Amino acid sequence: MVDRSAGVPAPPAFAAASYLLADLDTGEVLLAKDAHGRYLPASTLKTLTVLTVLPDVDPRQVVTAERSDLVDGSKVGLDPGSHYTVGQLLQGTMLASGNDTATALARVAGGVPQTVARMQAEAVRLGARDTTVRNPSGLDAPGQLTSAYDLALIARAAMQLPAFRSLVTTKRVRFPGKEVKGKARTSFQIQNHNRLLYNYDGTIGVKDGYTIAARWTAISAVQRGSHRYLFTAMRRGEPSWRTQAAMFDWAFRYGPQVQPVGRLVEPGELERASTVTGEPRVAAAGRPASAALQAAGPTDGTLKVVGAGGVAAALLAVVLLALSARAKRRQVALARARRGARAASRR
């Protein structure tokens, strides 16, 4: 879905089941494909983990790794019994995509189940109603799903935190190795997995991920001058940074000429709208009781909302994919034509 003006070429092809391109500052959505489709997040979910715990942890705190931290999937290489700072756990989670460091971070932040519950609550607060959290690592788990739209909400909120921005623009650091009594502790280098960060000028984040079931997922953000754009993609067909770069090239060249097809809701906005309309706030699986809101502007310019029972007028104001400016103009023209026809019939 894109609303191009004359002279604006189509955006570049992108092989993914779902993606979204938005202005990071205004929240205006310029381009979307199946933005609310729910897919496995892989390690992009770590963005929500860090967003949730970062305000409450002390990066200087020293913690002891435990055997329970050593979950499946990608690992930084925590050694049970060895000591690490919370800051190093954060680096291991967002740079090297360590499932072990993400699990340790959740444990230190109050416990893994408690952190998962807080992540779910944070998703609801942000309006990320397509998201269901099962673990802090993003490792495949039954029912753990999110959407390109929700990843954009999560990343946009995280990018407002200076500590997070610093973390996701770090390319490489030294990470401590195993502690051995009587010997100097060794270290090894870990690198940021976000290839766009090394190859595309202006990249300011954020996180990518991969599992066999999820395929490649990505959140990326780039700044050029005063403009910042955010791109999210799920179930990508390939991991190349070049296809993301092509999307950003298009955004920076033509973005100001493209009419928004929707916007990212602000934190708490859907909660406030639910209070006004009396809609149930959230279902057990972390989704609205009326089902995920989906909207499209058909050729007659009317707005259709899919959901059990419909949504009251106040909630329509924040529907996730609003009418484009072009559709609104068509709607005004249709209204004028109807008024003209009624006037003619009375003559």
Rank of each mutant, 00 (worst) to 15 (best):
P12L: 01
P12V: 03
A22V: 04
G27V: 04
V29E: 01
A35N: 07
H36N: 14
R38D: 04
R38H: 05
Y39G: 07
Y39V: 11
T44I: 05
T47G: 09
T49R: 01
V50E: 08
T52S: 06
R60H: 14
V62K: 03
D72V: 14
G77T: 09
D79S: 15
S82N: 02
T85E: 11
T85V: 13
L90P: 03
T93Y: 04
T93S: 09
D100C: 00
A106F: 02
A106H: 02
V108A: 04
G110K: 03
P113V: 05
V116A: 02
E122K: 05
A128P: 04
A128W: 00
R129S: 15
D130F: 02
T131C: 04
P142W: 09
G143P: 10
R156K: 08
A157D: 03
L161V: 11
R165Y: 07
S166K: 14
S166H: 15
L167R: 06
T169V: 13
S187T: 15
I190V: 11
N192A: 08
R195G: 09
Y200G: 03
Y200P: 04
D201F: 05
K207T: 09
D208K: 11
T211Y: 00
A221L: 00
A221C: 09
R224Q: 14
S226L: 13
S226K: 14
M234L: 15
E238S: 11
P239H: 04
P239S: 06
T243S: 13
A245T: 02
M247R: 01
F248C: 09
Y254L: 08
P260F: 00
R263V: 05
E266N: 11
L270W: 11
E271C: 12
S274E: 12
T277F: 04
E279F: 08
A283R: 13
A289L: 13
G301S: 08
G301I: 02
K304H: 13
V305T: 08
G307D: 08
G309P: 12
G309A: 04
V311L: 06
A312S: 12
A317T: 12
A317Y: 09
V318W: 07
R329L: 08
A337V: 12
R338C: 10
S345A: 15
S345K: 10
R347W: 10
